[in-house]
């Protein structure tokens, strides 16, 4: 049970949050301009690093706001949270 430091609410149990996958994968400015392969990569392909990983979390049972966290996938330590 991670203790996640919500940037708005402070430290809360992991089960108050839900996970939103890799952070900083922006919706393309013009999807129509993308090739099928580029669009497919946006839809389906995400990084899977061993080590620090920037990911999105939502404090769904609290303030209901999204934020980013850097988590080390080897140790499960949350290294940093930011809005």
């Amino acid at each position: 049970m991670l203790l996640i430091d919500c940037p708005w609410c402070g430290p809360r149990n992991e089960d108050e949050f839900h996970y939103g996958g890799q952070a900083h994968v922006a919706y393309p400015a013009d999807p129509a301009a993308l090739s099928d392969e580029e669009w497919g990569r946006y839809l389906f392909v995400r990084d899977n690093p061993k080590g620090p990983f920037a990911e999105r979390w939502c404090h769904s049972s609290g303030c209901r706001r999204w934020f980013n966290a850097v988590r080390d996938t080897r140790t499960n330590e949350v290294l940093r949270v930011y809005r």
């Binding site: 013009d30 999807p31 129509a32 993308l34 099928d36 669009w39 497919g40 839809l43």
Partner: peptide
């Protein structure tokens, strides 16, 4: 509409 959620996927093969 130029875009909406899911539109681009309708032209995937």
């Amino acid at each position: 509409k130029t875009d909406f959620i899911g539109k681009r996927s309708f032209t995937r093969p």
